[in-house]
Simulated assay, not measured.
Amino acid sequence: MKKQKVRPKPRFTRNRAVAIGAIAAVLAIVGFFGYRALVPTNGSVPVLSFPMNDFIKATHGKSGYFYLSQTSGSVKGLRTSSSNSGSQINPNYVYSKGELVSFHFINEDYDTHSQHNFNIDEFNVHTKDLGYFGSETVSFVADKTGTFNYYCSIHPEMKGTITVEQ
């Protein structure tokens, strides 16, 4: 009687090829968006450094609409006009030239549920119009010296300045 040769199971099956293709697609998508997240709004290449993080919210009170800093006064970026290190209304920020800056903006206008945005034209910083409790983070490189205005295009009274020093 002749012995039949047993064929080994193939190592690369169709299911494995599909799984490897799916994993490669997910990694490519994560890589693409990860790369894009490292590119500041006024740049074209990724910046691999830790940003100055400032937290600012849009709100409403008895005096009208305003930005409120959620960054402590002891942090380098915030210039306070008093010895109070708590929240500041329409705060002024100070940065060094070449510094990577991230603004974490949130709309906490509970009173009117109005839309708000955050803009700095000179650094191409523009958030979407955010509804109540909407948030967005924008990063930019402070590559120009001087004093620049930030503002809400919906409510002109919401404004402040950032200063970039040499």
Rank of each mutant, 00 (worst) to 15 (best):
G64K: 09
V94R: 07
G134F: 01
G98N: 04
L27C: 14
V18C: 08
H126W: 10
M158V: 14
T112F: 14
G131Y: 12
I120S: 06
S72E: 08
G43P: 09
S49L: 03
F148I: 02
Y151T: 09
T163R: 14
V30D: 03
G160V: 05
N149F: 08
F140G: 02
G134N: 01
V18Y: 13
V141R: 02
M1I: 10
I106F: 06
G34D: 04
F66P: 00
Y95M: 07
Y35M: 01
T13W: 01
G86M: 09
G43W: 15
F133K: 12
S85V: 10
D143M: 11
G31H: 05
P156D: 14
Y132P: 00
A24D: 00
D54C: 15
R16A: 14
N84L: 11
R7F: 11
T137V: 08
V26W: 01
I154H: 12
G61P: 04
T163M: 09
S87Q: 07
K76R: 11
A58K: 03
F133V: 05
M158E: 14
H104V: 09
A142G: 04
N84K: 11
Y35Q: 03
E165P: 00
Y150I: 06
N53D: 14
K3M: 12
K144P: 02
T147E: 09
G160L: 03
V47D: 02
F50D: 13
L130P: 13
V26C: 04
T147D: 04
H104M: 07
K9F: 13
K62S: 15
I56P: 01
T145G: 01
H126N: 09
